[in-house]
Every structure is written in structure tokens, then in C-alpha cells.
Simulated scan of single mutants.
Amino acid sequence: MTAGFAVLAAAVATMTPAALWNPQSWWQSIAVWFVIAIIAHDLIAFPVYAVADRALQRGTRVRSRQRSATVNYLRIPSMAATLTFLVFLPGIIEQGGPAYQAATGHTQEPFLTRWLWLTATFFTLSAITFGLRTTRTPR
């Protein structure tokens, strides 16, 4: 937490507080988007994935001590897929296509397909790892 607050203080000191607020169009301000992100995570996303995780744990037919380890083989690729989706969302929904094409000479068309392949790879590697773990673990 201390390191996080130190990075925040350094960012605010570098950008100056005035840079965080856009008086011409307030909704484009970094401060407004930061508050929206906090609210969206804490009031919407967290309850959704907490309920999904609870349902996943209840649906797993393993002893309670091994349940958490087993569920992690779905949690980790799910989190990785969600994080890469959020990072590459503008490319996936082809937002800013003309600017991207002018800068790179490429279109944003393959972003969704590549994200889907990456997600499939995450889950495949997790399934292989889970399979190796269950075949090597004595019962």
C-alpha cells in the first residue's frame, strides 16, 4: 500500500493536479474516470466475480482442502483473459481505427481473433497442467 501511494504521489506531482481535470469537458478528466473505475469495480465487478467464484467452488466435487487448488486452474486463466481483454479493449472494439491505421499501417481487425486464441491458450495450458497434476498426484 505504501508503494502504491508513493507511485500515486509521484504521478500527481509529475502531472500536476491541474492535468487530472479537464475544464472544457469534465467527463474526459482522468479524475472522473478513476472514480468511475473504482465504483464499477467495487459495486459491479467484485460482486459478480465473487458470486461466480462461490458457484464454481460449490460446483467442484473435491474435498474442501483441495477445492481451492482445483478451482485455481479456472481462476488463473479467467483472470488472465479478463485482464488482457481490458488492456486490449479499444483494439478489440476497433475504437480509434483511423488513428491506429495511420500510425501503424495495420487495421484493428485481428485483435478480437488474437484475444480469443490467447484466451484459448490460457485455458488449454491450465487444463494440461491440471491433467498432469491429477495424474501424478497419489490418491
Rank of each mutant, 00 (worst) to 15 (best):
P110I: 09
R54C: 07
T121N: 01
I30F: 10
A120L: 11
A99I: 09
T84V: 10
L74E: 09
L8I: 05
Q108N: 11
A55S: 07
G91K: 01
W27L: 05
D53Y: 02
H41R: 02
A31H: 06
V7R: 11
S78M: 15
G105R: 08
G97C: 07
V87T: 15
Q101P: 12
V12W: 11
L20H: 04
T129P: 14
T134R: 01
T113M: 04
R67D: 00
P138W: 08
I128E: 11
L86F: 12
G59H: 03
A40L: 04
I128L: 08
F130G: 07
G91E: 02
Q66N: 05
P98H: 08
P138R: 02
F34S: 06
V12P: 10
G105H: 13
V62H: 01
W115G: 03
V35E: 01
A81L: 07
G91S: 01
R67W: 00
I30P: 09
L56S: 03
P77V: 05
T60I: 11
L86A: 10
F85K: 12
G96P: 03
A18R: 03
A19R: 02
A10M: 13
A69S: 04
P47I: 08
W115A: 00
P17D: 03
E94Y: 06
T2P: 02
F5L: 13
S68T: 13
T60N: 07
L112Y: 05
R133S: 03
R54M: 02
Q101N: 11
R63T: 02
V48R: 13
V7P: 15
R136Y: 13
A45L: 06
L86H: 13
T60S: 04
A37C: 10
P77G: 11
R139M: 02
T60A: 14
V51P: 14
A13Q: 06
W117H: 01
L74H: 00
L86S: 13
Q95K: 09
G105E: 11
Q66H: 06
I92M: 03
W117N: 04
A69L: 06
Y100E: 05
